[in-house]
C-alpha cells in the first residue's frame, strides 16, 4: 500500500546505551508534492469531508503511528528488521 512515509537509517554508535533504532521514518504529506493547488480538484461531500478532515481527497494525509506495527522490539520497515551492529544494510 503506497504511503507518504519515507525512511532513513540514523547512525548507530557501538556506545549507545539503549537498543539502537536502525530505521527511522517521517511523514511527507501530499502538499509537499502538490505545490500550488490546482483548480477544481475533486471534493468530498460535506459529511465525508468532516470525517476525512479535508475537503479534497488528494490532500488527505493520515499521520499514522509507525510504531504500531513494531514486533519483538525491532522496528520493521518493508521487511528489513535489524541490521547488524555496524552495517546498516
Amino acid at each position: 500500500m503506497y504511503t507518504y512515509r519515507k525512511a532513513y537509517r540514523p547512525f548507530v554508535s557501538p556506545n549507545d546505551p539503549c537498543p539502537p533504532m536502525w530505521v527511522k521514518t517521517y511523514e511527507t504529506p501530499p502538499q509537499l508534492y502538490l505545490g500550488f493547488q490546482p483548480y477544481g480538484m475533486p471534493q468530498f461531500p460535506p459529511m465525508e469531508a468532516l470525517r476525512w478532515g479535508t475537503l479534497w481527497p488528494a490532500l488527505f494525509a493520515p499521520y499514522s503511528n509507525p510504531y504500531k506495527q513494531k514486533r519483538m522490539g525491532g522496528y520493521r520497515w518493508n521487511g528489513q528488521m535489524n541490521g547488524s551492529r555496524y552495517t546498516n544494510s
Binding site: Q37, P46, A49, T54
Partner: peptide, 21 residues
C-alpha cells in the same frame, strides 16, 4: 449540530483555499 459542523468545516476549507486562489 452535525450538519452545521459539516457545513462550517467546508466553509473553513474553502476560506483557506480562496486565500490563495
Amino acid at each position: 449540530m452535525k450538519e452545521i459542523q459539516a457545513v462550517d468545516f467546508v466553509l473553513v476549507e474553502l476560506n483557506l483555499y480562496l486565500d490563495t486562489h
